[in-house]
Amino acid sequence: MITSRFLRVWQRNFVVWTKYYLSTLIGAIGEPLIFLWALGYGMGRYIVHIDGMSYLEFMAPGLWITACMNASSLECTFNTFTRLSTQKTYDAIIATPISPAEIAAGDVLFGATRSFITGNLVLAIYFLFGLIHHWSALFIPFIGFVVGLFFGSLGLCMTALARSYDFFTYYFILVLTPALMLTGVFFPVSNLPQPLRDIVSWVPLTQMVSITRDIFLNRWQWSSVGYIIYTLAFSLLLFLVAAKLMHRRLIK
């Protein structure tokens, strides 16, 4: 059973993060900015329009999701692994009334928190760059949080199975990077061959990218809410797996 004690784990992570936040934020914001400049202003000149948008307009929402995805993915893989394995922080915590599932919950929530913070900052930069034209953009940070829950849970599953940091290099290169290529961040999903397109449309990331793009352009619909619920349900499932795996990893 998960009690509100998981908030104490979140709080612990937050206290530690406040000591390092500057370096994590610079990394989190720097990457999308570089991409935006290189692909948008640089390469974008050779691409006239996608679905009636400039390439910069097309790509900005996808890059924004990428930043959110990376924030919680990094937190719940490398950082969680450090606490789990190198520092044995979690061994110390399960000597108290906090359970492994609550540790997992605190970690995923913190991953989502970092996505949320990163998302807001990148959004603020977009605003300065004049990429935001509609008030509906105020809903976008909430999507960052949902994306954070999803990738936090997935990352935690990987961490509970990992034997060393190398494992995460594979996860980032072989899972997350291809996912970005296929889910409509850099080019429309409709360009994919048919069977792949069907599979990809069931991946929550695809839906989040497309909803975010719709919100940026102020053309979102109520059906978007269904996709958000779908992503949350998917995240919950992944979280339950992660909690189970963490329990197995922590208690011998």
Binding site: V15, Q87, T89, T96
Partner: peptide, 15 residues
């Protein structure tokens, strides 16, 4: 298994 990023006092508060 103390928290290396935290001070002595913070370790106790967090725990």
């Amino acid at each position: 298994n103390l928290d290396p990023d935290l001070s002595v006092f913070e370790n106790l508060v967090v725990y």
